[in-house]
């Protein structure tokens, strides 16, 4: 294979000595050239985070978000699938029956979440719960700024999951109507 060549030195110790001296200087100079190039000519890559922020990808998985319908109610049907699949047991959904009026004016009994709690401190953001949801109501968004010194505040109730910003990839695709627009903002 085309390996990096190994060091070759003369068998004559005197020549080998000067070969060592010479190669030390030359290779050090080569290294210095690269580091010097980086120091002076290549742009910096670090971002001073709290002051500057990078755009996160739309697929970034952070805080959950529960979608709502036009009336502002969550569209979750409290089927409990997300609770069942979550490997970390961080979702708790309980069911209640509510009566809603459909656009046609009929009264209908539907299942709605009574209690919907996600313990983000335990969550590993695997996206399994979002994928399993039959009505596409649970999504992971780019909202990552909810760290806290108190682990109990990481237990987020339903109200905390309704914040409309930022959009998840799913919603972005819905609103743009352009599936192939994903990935970039």
């Amino acid at each position: 294979m085309g390996h990096v060549p190994r060091t070759q030195v003369s068998s004559n110790p005197i020549i080998a000595f000067f070969q060592y001296v010479w190669s030390s200087l030359i290779t050090a100079a080569k290294g210095l050239r690269v580091t010097g190039y980086n120091a002076w000519l290549r742009e910096r890559v670090t971002v001073a985070y709290p002051k500057q922020e990078l755009d996160l990808s739309l697929r970034t998985r952070a805080k959950h978000r529960v979608l709502v319908d036009d009336t502002g109610d969550p569209i979750c049907i409290a089927c409990g699938q997300c609770q069942r699949i979550c490997p970390d047991h961080c979702i708790l959904v309980t069911r209640k029956k509510v009566t809603v009026t459909t656009p046609e004016g009929e009264e209908k009994q539907v299942n709605r979440p009574d209690e919907f709690v996600i313990d983000l401190a335990r969550c590993m953001y695997c996206n399994l719960c979002a994928e399993v949801c039959p009505v596409d109501c649970l999504h992971l968004t780019r909202d990552f700024k909810y760290s806290s010194g108190d682990v109990h505040t990481m237990r987020i109730e339903l109200e905390g999951l309704l914040r409309p910003e930022p959009l998840s990839e799913y919603e972005a695709n819905q609103t743009d109507g352009a599936d192939d627009e994903g990935g970039e903002e």
């Binding site: 990096v4 060091t7 290779t27 290294g31 690269v34």
Partner: peptide, 18 residues
């Protein structure tokens, strides 16, 4: 190739790893 210049081919590095 830059990595080679900075590290792999460097005399000091060679003395340490070869």
């Amino acid at each position: 190739p830059e990595y080679d210049d900075v590290f792999t081919n460097n005399r000091v590095a060679r003395a340490r790893i070869e």
